[in-house]
Simulated scan of single mutants.
Amino acid sequence: MTLRDAALYITKLPKAQHDAPEWQAAMEALLLVAELGGPTMFARIGVMRALNRHVERVFNPDRKETHWGKRKLARDR
C-alpha cells in the first residue's frame, strides 16, 4: 500500500475512531513522512499500532525453550 492509501483509509474512518489518539498519532506520522521526507517506518508503525489498538500483548513464557542449563563448558566435561 502507499501513503496515499493509508491517508484515504484514515480520512474515511467514522468520527469516533478518527479522533482516537492512536489514529491522530498515525496521521502525524504520515504527515511527517509525506511532507518532510521522514522515515517511512514511522508511518507504518503508527498505522499498525492504530489498527491493533485493542489487542493486548501478553508474554507467553512457554513459547520458546531456553538454552540455560543445557550447555556445558569444556572444562566441566
Rank of each mutant, 00 (worst) to 15 (best):
F59W: 12
T11F: 09
G38N: 03
L36G: 03
A26F: 01
K12Q: 13
L8Q: 12
P61Y: 07
R63I: 08
L31V: 13
L32A: 14
V33H: 04
L36I: 05
E65K: 10
R77P: 02
N52K: 08
E22D: 14
A43W: 00
G38T: 04
E22P: 04
H67A: 14
H54I: 04
V58K: 14
I10Q: 01
L30M: 08
Y9V: 06
P14W: 02
D76T: 10
L13F: 05
R77C: 08
D76E: 15
G38K: 03
R49C: 07
V55I: 14
E22G: 05
A20H: 15
A43G: 03
L30R: 01
A50D: 00
D62H: 11
L36D: 13
T66Y: 03
D19I: 00
F42P: 00
L51H: 02
T2H: 02
K64S: 13
A20R: 11
T11Y: 07
V47F: 04
E56K: 15
E28S: 15
F59H: 11
E65L: 14
E65C: 04
R44N: 04
P61E: 09
A6N: 00
F42D: 13
L30I: 15
A29S: 12
A29D: 02
K72D: 05
H67Y: 09
T40C: 03
A7F: 06
A34H: 12
K64Y: 14
L30E: 00
E22A: 15
M27N: 10
L36N: 11
Y9D: 03
R77N: 08
T11H: 08
F42R: 08
M27Y: 10
R53E: 03
W68I: 10
M41G: 02
D5M: 06
A7E: 09
G69L: 06
K12P: 00
L8N: 13
Y9I: 09
D5H: 10
G69P: 01
K70Y: 07
L8F: 07
E35L: 15
M1V: 07
E65F: 08
R71H: 05
R44M: 09
L36K: 13
H54L: 08
D19N: 11
A25K: 07
R49T: 07
K70D: 09
P14D: 02
H67N: 11
R49S: 09
L51W: 01
D5K: 03
T40P: 04
A43S: 09
R75S: 14
E28C: 13
R4S: 10
K15A: 12
R77W: 12
D76C: 01
R53V: 10
A29L: 05
F59A: 12
W23G: 00
G38L: 04
D19Q: 11
R71L: 13
T2S: 15
M41C: 03
K15N: 02
D19K: 07
L8M: 12
K15S: 06
G38D: 06
K15R: 10
R75I: 05
R63G: 15
A29T: 02
M48H: 02
E65M: 11
F59I: 11
T2G: 15
T40W: 02
G69F: 02
L73V: 05
E22W: 03
R71E: 07
A29C: 08
I45A: 10
A26I: 01
V58L: 14
M27Q: 14
R44W: 06
